[in-house]
Simulated scan of single mutants.
Amino acid sequence: MRKSLALGFGLAAALVATVALARPPGPDEIGEFYFYFDANGNEVGHAQLSCSGVYTESGVRTANYSAGHMICPPPRD
């Protein structure tokens, strides 16, 4: 019984790790943005890390995406 339970937990952990690794990329730098598209080329989601460091995301992430960088003003001291 304990072996079955341990095996079940191990398989569940492996599945969670696989799903987390399979997620399409998103912004990880200030000013970076991504647009995500379905198979027909329609936009289905977007994510961005604004110049002020605010992260926003909506819709869904897909394997079809386009990425870019905003032109951020230099920080004021």
Score class of each variant (00 low, 15 high):
71 I>V: 14
65 Y>P: 15
8 G>A: 10
42 N>S: 10
14 A>E: 09
68 G>C: 10
15 L>D: 06
9 F>E: 13
49 L>I: 01
51 C>V: 01
17 A>L: 08
60 V>M: 07
1 M>G: 12
74 P>V: 06
8 G>M: 12
42 N>K: 11
64 N>F: 08
18 T>P: 00
34 Y>R: 13
50 S>C: 05
56 T>G: 04
23 R>Q: 15
18 T>E: 03
74 P>I: 04
39 A>N: 14
38 D>I: 05
29 E>S: 13
9 F>W: 13
43 E>C: 07
77 D>P: 14
50 S>N: 10
44 V>G: 05
61 R>W: 02
28 D>G: 06
33 F>W: 15
67 A>Y: 13
10 G>Q: 08
23 R>A: 15
51 C>R: 01
29 E>V: 03
49 L>Q: 01
77 D>N: 09
44 V>P: 08
27 P>C: 00
63 A>Y: 15
43 E>A: 14
15 L>G: 04
5 L>G: 01
15 L>C: 09
72 C>N: 01
45 G>D: 01
31 G>Q: 06
20 A>M: 14
77 D>W: 02
50 S>M: 04
17 A>F: 02
17 A>E: 01
65 Y>W: 15
50 S>V: 03
5 L>K: 08
70 M>W: 14
8 G>V: 07
22 A>K: 10
65 Y>N: 11
66 S>C: 11
65 Y>R: 13
17 A>K: 00
16 V>S: 04
56 T>P: 00
25 P>Y: 05
7 L>I: 12
36 Y>T: 06
35 F>M: 14
24 P>V: 05
38 D>K: 04
44 V>N: 04
1 M>N: 07
3 K>C: 07
28 D>Q: 06
47 A>W: 02
7 L>S: 14
77 D>L: 11
3 K>H: 13
10 G>T: 08
21 L>W: 07
25 P>K: 04
54 V>M: 10
27 P>E: 00
75 P>F: 01
24 P>A: 09
4 S>M: 13
66 S>R: 14
68 G>I: 07
74 P>W: 07
17 A>C: 02
54 V>A: 08
29 E>M: 06
59 G>P: 02
36 Y>K: 11
73 P>F: 01
59 G>W: 01
42 N>R: 11
26 G>Y: 12
68 G>N: 10
12 A>D: 01
58 S>N: 10
11 L>I: 12
24 P>G: 10
20 A>K: 08
9 F>D: 13
55 Y>R: 01
12 A>W: 01
55 Y>S: 00
26 G>W: 11
77 D>G: 08
69 H>V: 01
31 G>I: 02
23 R>L: 13
30 I>C: 03
2 R>F: 12
61 R>A: 02
51 C>M: 02
22 A>W: 11
10 G>V: 06
60 V>N: 11
66 S>Q: 15
46 H>Q: 15
41 G>H: 04
73 P>C: 00
58 S>C: 03
